[in-house]
Nucleic acid binder design. Sequence first.
DNA 1: TATGAATGAGAATTCATTCAT
DNA 2: TATGAATGAATTCTCATTCAT
Lengths: 216, 216, 216, 216
Amino acid sequence: MTRDTTPVTEERQRDADRSQSTILAAARDEFAENGLGGARMDRIAERAGLNKRLIYYYFADKEALFQAVLEQAYRDIREQERQLNLLDVPPAEALRRLVEFTWNYYLAHPEFMTLLNSANLHRARHLQGSKKAREMNSPLIEMLAGILERGRKDGSFRGGVDPVQLYVSIAGLSYFYLSNNYTLSAIFGRDLMSTKAKHERLAHMCDVILGYVLRS
Amino acid sequence: MTRDTTPVTEERQRDADRSQSTILAAARDEFAENGLGGARMDRIAERAGLNKRLIYYYFADKEALFQAVLEQAYRDIREQERQLNLLDVPPAEALRRLVEFTWNYYLAHPEFMTLLNSANLHRARHLQGSKKAREMNSPLIEMLAGILERGRKDGSFRGGVDPVQLYVSIAGLSYFYLSNNYTLSAIFGRDLMSTKAKHERLAHMCDVILGYVLRS
Amino acid sequence: MTRDTTPVTEERQRDADRSQSTILAAARDEFAENGLGGARMDRIAERAGLNKRLIYYYFADKEALFQAVLEQAYRDIREQERQLNLLDVPPAEALRRLVEFTWNYYLAHPEFMTLLNSANLHRARHLQGSKKAREMNSPLIEMLAGILERGRKDGSFRGGVDPVQLYVSIAGLSYFYLSNNYTLSAIFGRDLMSTKAKHERLAHMCDVILGYVLRS
Amino acid sequence: MTRDTTPVTEERQRDADRSQSTILAAARDEFAENGLGGARMDRIAERAGLNKRLIYYYFADKEALFQAVLEQAYRDIREQERQLNLLDVPPAEALRRLVEFTWNYYLAHPEFMTLLNSANLHRARHLQGSKKAREMNSPLIEMLAGILERGRKDGSFRGGVDPVQLYVSIAGLSYFYLSNNYTLSAIFGRDLMSTKAKHERLAHMCDVILGYVLRS
DNA sequence: TATGAATGAGAATTCATTCAT
DNA sequence: TATGAATGAATTCTCATTCAT
């Protein structure tokens, strides 16, 4: 009997897990494209290919779903960040790689930026509720601190650089360009997303960060 | 007769104009607080202290109202930017003032950032329709170009700096910090909006920009 | 003084009359195109090139305006009908002309049919209120009675034909074809409004009416 | 298990079907009484005893609902027409029955006329969209063609009668009288819907049609 | 006579959510 | 676990009508 039911249960569990992450992925896309206010539960169900009612089976309501999506998004980026290994790389090169990583992550995950915007529009109340806020702290801060320390020690970097400030600056340089690329393109009348433009932006950002950090 | 009718006409005109800009201001606040999807026409009317129907009398629909708000927001910031006179200021100091101006504008007008986010969430389609997109080009670009030129000439600045890239970077440094301050505060567990934190951020940004631009 | 004001008053009166009939014409078109429920006071004002408020100056409300339009429409058709002089025409030819007149009137005034439909949709309550209902009686009834009498006397027409019934039949033969021409065209898959089709219809209707009335 | 689920599914299906046709019937009445522009979705829901939202669950919008009502109305009349069996009836009698059928159908289904009027007010655009327009072709046309053929063969009917024209005429004779009965009654000052008046009309129409068709 | 501004009631449609199975 | 049917409360937008001049 046990043998009989156990696999069934497991299978069900697997189905349940799959449904749940299908919903999460669909919701992420919908929220990313339309914001929290513009997202539609109907469309999420449709994207997921599942019944709308099922969403409510797994998530209390739209808000809870958004919070889950947000947490998942943080888990994803932190996971990627943890893969970055810059311990053996010379400080300047390490910084350059870090800038590049941030840029590429936003490029590959534009939804992360819109989710972040939505979260902040709502004053991050979805994070307040989450006990995991602290877990969301980026491992990049630690990494940056290490790099800065190494650079300062070998005399190539200036001292007194706050890794948190630098982290925010690195992110901001990519973020503003990519998140506002539609309005910026319209205003400047040039395509900011062409291959050439993207190369130039990345080069500029590296110059800025290194120009700031390198001891002259 | 003339005396009688003229003021009447003017007052009417003034009423219409006043109603329209009252609506615009109310809409700006509502859109800024809730995004395009989360904004409520009812609330806009309520904020404006005017009949909801009147909004539709002056603006075709929610979208058109949003577009009008956006255009107004750009007019406002460009107006402020034009006031900045940095011609007589030494290049390095001029750059510092420019960073400071940007920072202070965002601080004083947080709604500008959320409006920008909303506009980009919708792929700037409200700008595409606007013939004024080009008028929205920032005078800061020209100003920056002049400053960079002066700095290069007097030997204090490095050459080859693209004013557009630099403009985007200056904006991005403030923008990311302020626009995402809720999530960042939650994650870092510190208040990014304290007076001290704000001072530190401004100092850091000036360091970054000048560190990059100054010839070592 | 009298001399001075009189012409002014007359001119004003003329303006007033003109405005009123401009409104009536605009309203007739709007009601004809959209029915009573679908007509829009805004559009009527726009069509008339006059301020919406003015409509209310001359007509109590939408209903009263519709009633005025209806009365005008009846006045118009009765006026035209009165022009028909068939006294000197041989009975059979007179009937043929009458059929032709009806057909041509509907062709030239499709709005008359839609107005009639609207009036009947509302159970002719706009006519009930009108003291003029009786004035709306068609002179064609009398005319028809005369023709039938002449035909019966000269032995060419059958006796016992009710002029009212015949009037309704003559009208009905044109009306159904023209009023429902869109659905009929769609269903039959042929264009009922081509020149050829119209000729055929007219010939058919004459055949029907004369076939019925002529003594065999 | 099978026993358990089958009826469930069926009942669900039946509920959905029932809701849908309840809505259709309610909508038909509302549209018939008020026209497309005058009909109210609220009232349709109320008439149906169902939630207004449900209407939108099954029908895209008011227009689509109207189209569905129209198609249903055509299905209904065509269904009734198909029941008419006039093959074994002598031609003259067959024609008489056809006139009578048409008359009685309109009498019993006055909503059909107002729906038709609404459809034509809107230039039959609801039919254009419907692939079924052709299916709506009346079987009466074929029937009429057969009757005319039989009558011509046995020498009682004249030749050269177009069944489509005759069909339109038969319909028109009833339609005009019944559809416009309110205005006609007001104008003539007599009740066109009294039993006597209706008898007289039917007799007249038969006389007209047979008078036209019968060889003298 | 004429008009632009303003409004309250209402109408279509939408949306998150729940029911019943 | 999964789903189609159903709903109440909004929400955007419309419309006839009135105000003030």
